[in-house]
Structures are given as structure tokens and as C-alpha cells.
Design a protein around this nucleic acid. Structure first.
Length: 373
DNA sequence: TCTGGGGTCCTGGGACTT
DNA sequence: TCTGAAGTCCCAGGACCC
């Protein structure tokens, strides 16, 4: 398979190009910025709020490359980011807008390459083994055509990686961000992949990286040099085997062009930590609202679920979950609320918590899908 | 002083059945 | 009747990703 990985850069306002910008925080409407504007593209740079003096909860969803120079990035708390880069512009998250552009760029892509795996709002894998011209210049010609088509239709830039499999294509796409294009061949493994940190592998997060470091393994090359049996001793059979495979650039996962959701959930972090007894009314209303919204999601997407669960995050950031499986699948907000309430009775409610979530799993298709996309 | 929201997948333990 | 093995389901938590 010739895999192609593209991630689209969603910041498209020309007046902000090259400036440090972070997108994130708790969800606010664009109107809250500084009064109603026809669109963010019409706002002069000086009007955007700065990160300096930001107080309250919230994390960065994404940041421009100019902002990343200051050591801020995804998932960082906004207050910490404000200290590192006070002059950065803070934009609110606007998921409806992202979804709109996401549909648009994916439609453009599938017009050119029909075999697409959707990896979220801004990323896709493509297989262009069978696409006419897909092999020209190692895939560069087709990749450039896709980049050009997306830019002309949406103003969005995207970074692209082309490689023999999904693992390497994803890594290749990171080489020249933003708006980059990289091709990695099998024979490039030792020169282009092995010098990289293990953390660059999709699937190695902070925990695994820490364990690897403790074993004296920092780069992918060092990982590849280890005996597979030693890795299995350290990480267990499955993960050990997988680590050895990916270090050697091996990945035979096919493109997944269709999938069904496994669960749906809604959760919210409070402005301040709440207590089950002292904030009973507020929590009760919030809990009901979460269940209603979740029931709405299920109905809209055409699913019902049998397993109802809750999630709590305490003030010390520990999380707990409880769930319960019903005899039949439901979309009924009252039943979801009642069952989730029973789950909630099984957790420690004596200490304050910062987040409450409701989840429905064990999904079954109903025939009432109201969503067209 | 911190650390969102919405997902998937994996692991491991306990209950239950055969 | 008791015991152990194996399979399955349910549940909880952890790691990771976008």
C-alpha cells in the first residue's frame, strides 16, 4: 500500500499568519470576544484579546508555530501559557466552523482519492496505490494536487506525508509543518526515522516514553537495536512485539474507510469545584442537562445504547468511572438520567469534584438517523 | 495554579456458566 | 458434591489520540 497522510491546518485568517496565536479555553461564542463580527476574518489584529492576564480554567487546543517557539502547545493550561507567551492572541474554539471546513476538505480529497480513512476533524489517511498518477515522483505530484485543491477551495494549508504504510506516512507528515510535503521510502528508515525520538511514534505517549527512557532507549534507532524478547519482558507480549515492529517501520494496518462509534459521551468541567451536598441543586440541573444532550446526540446520530456510565474527576485530578448495563438499549433521557444516577451512588461523593460526564456504550443502530453527515 | 472534550483500545479482575 | 479450567460478560482504569 502507498499511504498518504494529511493533516490540515485549521487557522485560516490571513491577518494572523506568522503571529503567535493559541486556540483554546472553555467554549465561548465568537461574539464574546469583542461584540458581534460578521466573521473572524474581518477582525483587525489589534482587537483580538491577548493571552496576558488570563485567569481561570482551560487548555490550549492548538497553537500556531510562532506560538510554539515560546514553548506553548496543545493541552497546556492557559494560565501557564499566558506566563510563557503573554502577547499571544487567544482565539476561542469554534467546533461548528471546524466541522464545516472538515467536511469541505474531505469532499475535495475523496473526489481525487476515493479510499480515505477519517482520523478526526483535521486528519486523514489515503491509499493511492490504485489512483492514476499516484506513483509519479514517489507520490509528490498527487500530494501537491491535493494541497493545491484544498487551498484554492478553502484557504487552508495542509501538511502531507507519503510512505509505504500509515505509520511512516504519519511520521513523514510531521517533517515539514506547516504546509509541508515529505516522502519517506523504505530505504530511508535508518537515516530519517531512526534518529527521531521514540515519542514521535504514533502510539507512544508520555508513559511509554518514560519507561523506554528508564531502559536507556531514547531514539527509534535505539529501540530497533533491542532484542524483541527483551522488549516483551519489559512491556508485555503485545506491546513489546508492537514496539519492535514499529521501530523497524513495519505496519500492515489497512485503511479503515468505514466505522461505527463504540460509545457517545458528554462531559463538562465546572468553573469551580462542586460538592454533591453543598451544590446539590446546581449539580442536579447540570447532570440532567448532560443526560438530555447525550440523548439528543444518540437520537440525532441514530443510535441507542445499553451501557450507561458516569465519570467524575475529583479536585485532586483522580478520575473514577462507574457503569451499568440495561437489558435493552435506550435513548430515553429520563432512563439515562436514572441509571447514571444509580452509577453516581456507587462513587465517593464526600469530596469535591471538577468534572462530571455521562457515557452511553454498547451502541445499537436505530433507524432514526437525523444527521446527513 | 495548573491540566478540555470526545473518543478508541487494551488489560485485568470478578462473577457466572459450562 | 466438590474442584478446577476455560470462556464470556461486565466493570474499572489506564494510555493514547485528535
Amino acid at each position: 500500500m502507498d499511504a498518504f497522510y494529511a493533516s490540515v491546518e485549521l487557522l485560516r485568517y490571513p491577518q494572523l499568519k506568522g503571529l503567535p496565536v493559541v486556540i483554546g479555553g472553555r467554549r465561548r461564542s465568537v461574539d464574546e470576544l469583542n461584540g458581534p463580527w460578521p466573521s473572524l476574518a474581518d477582525i483587525p489584529v489589534g482587537v483580538f484579546p491577548k493571552l496576558s492576564g488570563y485567569t481561570g480554567r482551560g487548555v490550549i487546543t492548538t497553537a500556531t508555530y510562532a506560538a510554539r517557539q515560546f514553548g506553548v502547545g496543545s493541552a497546556m493550561g492557559l494560565m501557564k501559557a499566558a506566563k510563557r507567551c503573554p502577547d499571544a492572541i487567544l482565539l476561542p474554539v469554534d467546533f461548528d466552523e471546524y466541522r464545516k471546513y472538515s467536511r469541505q476538505f474531505k469532499a475535495i480529497i475523496t473526489d481525487i482519492v476515493p479510499l480515505m480513512e477519517d482520523r478526526g476533524v483535521d486528519e486523514v489517511y489515503l491509499d493511492f496505490t490504485e489512483v492514476p498518477g499516484g506513483q509519479r515522483e514517489g507520490g509528490r505530484v498527487l500530494a501537491r494536487l491535493i494541497q493545491k485543491s484544498i487551498f484554492e477551495a478553502t484557504g487552508l494549508t495542509c501538511s502531507v506525508g507519503v510512505a509505504p504504510n500509515k505509520l511512516l506516512a504519519k511520521m513523514a507528515s510531521e517533517f515539514n509543518k506547516p504546509n509541508g510535503l515529505s516522502v519517506v521510502f523504505e530505504e530511508d528508515l535508518q537515516t530519517k526515522i531512526w534518529p527521531l525520538s521514540c515519542r514521535k511514534i504514533n502510539g507512544i505517549g508520555p508513559k511509554t516514553d518514560e519507561k523506554l527512557s528508564a531502559a536507556g532507549i531514547h531514539t527509534i534507532g535505539e529501540l530497533a537495536a533491542r532484542d524483541p524478547f527483551e522488549l516483551q519482558q519489559l512491556f508485555g507480549q503485545n506491546q513489546g512485539r508492537w514496539l519492535h515492529q514499529v521501530a523497524w517501520g513495519r505496519d500492515d494496518r489497512p485503511l479503515v474507510t468505514e466505522s461505527e462509534p463504540v460509545s457517545l459521551s458528554r462531559e463538562t468541567t465546572f468553573e469551580r469545584d462542586l460538592h454533591a451536598q453543598h451544590d446539590k441543586a446546581e449539580l442536579g440541573a447540570l447532570f440532567t442537562r448532560l443526560c438530555e444532550r447525550l440523548a439528543g446526540d444518540l437520537t440525532r446520530k441514530g443510535y441507542a445504547g445499553r451501557t450507561i456510565g458516569v465519570k467524575l474527576r475529583y479536585d485532586d485530578f483522580r478520575s473514577v468511572t462507574r457503569d451499568q448495563t440495561l437489558p435493552v438499549a435506550t435513548v430515553d433521557p429520563a432512563l439515562i438520567r436514572r441509571t447514571a444516577g444509580l452509577c453516581l451512588n456507587r462513587v465517593d461523593l464526600t469530596r469535591r469534584f471538577r468534572l462530571l460526564g455521562v457515557r452511553v456504550g454498547n451502541l445499537e443502530k436505530t433507524n432514526f438517523n437525523q444527521e446527513t453527515t
